[in-house]
Design a protein around this nucleic acid. Structure first.
Lengths: 130, 130
DNA sequence: CAGTATCCCCAAGGATACTG
DNA sequence: CAGTATCCTTGGGGATACTG
């Protein structure tokens, strides 16, 4: 696997949002959105789609280990959130393409570095290396 | 609440990691790390700590809604992952400070924009606005 | 103050079968 | 192919009580 990223020490960025007390209020919409977006399968789907349009069966294969139920559920949630677009062709057998909306792309651009970081640091972390 | 961030359309960034088939292998360490880091409470704790050292009781208050059990569990996981440092003073009553390690800061620098984005888009998303 | 220890429950999510 | 429907289990996680 090829890896290329900025692994030089990043200094703590000042919070762009004022979260003085309470990182987020308990019932806050941001919590919900964050939960959708950072959900186990949500991240994987969003990431897969960041490489371009994919069919249901592609996504099933690429998000290795996902069940049909969870794929359907995750896609619906992301679609409702306006992050994923569903394009169903009226043909037989059916063909459905999933892709990111503009907002979805915006998000994936933030997700990609995070996932790349996880990928790069995974070994050290699970092995307890500092 | 004060907000300042780059909300102009971000174009799809090319994936820095080659994930040709399978976003991630099922048993992959990155999956584990990603799960820790993007867990419901993990994000909130990491974010709170990105503003500096905090005590147990601070964290409990700031991650509004968290139970003692989940706070303990989340902190332990993050500590094992080398993202959070625990500093216990041998005084009575006990005083324990939590802070980010260097790796933790590196991560939080990636998390902050994500959370900021969620915060900015939350309203539109839950209201179904495009 | 900073946690542990227990009990307990519900719903997230897997497996399987079926369908337009 | 692209899903839906159903059943069923497990463990995530809340509430509460206790402790050094």
């Amino acid at each position: 696997m090829e890896v290329s990223a900025n692994s030089h020490a990043v200094q703590a960025a000042p919070l762009p949002v004022d979260l003085a007390d309470g990182v987020f209020p308990a019932g806050c919409p941001s919590r919900t959105v964050l939960d959708h977006v950072t959900s186990k399968w949500g991240v994987l789907i969003l990431l897969a789609l960041s490489e371009g349009e994919q069919r249901w069966s592609d996504l099933r294969r690429r998000a290795e280990g996902i069940s049909e139920k969870m794929l359907a559920q995750t896609l619906k949630t992301l679609e409702r959130d306006g992050l994923v677009r569903r394009d169903a062709q009226p043909v037989i057998p059916p063909r459905v393409d999933y892709s990111l909306t503009e907002r979805g792309y915006e998000l994936s651009a933030l997700l990609v570095p995070l996932v790349a970081w996880a990928f790069e640091n995974a070994e050290d972390i699970v092995n307890g290396k500092r």
